[in-house]
């Protein structure tokens, strides 16, 4: 990466920092995702079905 962008003075700092931020966010989200309890995941995924009226799938 440094070789490609080296001729733009200072640009490598922007890019490497940003990639590190992305990596950090990605790792944190991934870890949290795996630590998430199944109950929580199941509850969240059922949110579209919580309406009390008859919002079923008949057409």
């Amino acid at each position: 990466m440094n070789k490609i962008i080296g001729f733009v003075e200072g640009a490598d700092v922007y890019l490497v920092t940003s990639l590190l931020i992305f990596l950090l966010v990605f790792v944190v989200v991934s870890v949290q995702m795996f630590l998430m309890k199944k109950d929580t995941s199941d509850k969240m995924s059922m949110l579209p079905f919580h309406n009390s009226n008859s919002d079923n799938n008949e057409n």
């Binding site: 949290q32 995702m33 795996f34 199941d42 995924s45 579209p48």
Partner: peptide
Amino acid sequence: PIYSYRLSIL
């Protein structure tokens, strides 16, 4: 429900 709620976060 959606296949994987965890995957949706990622």
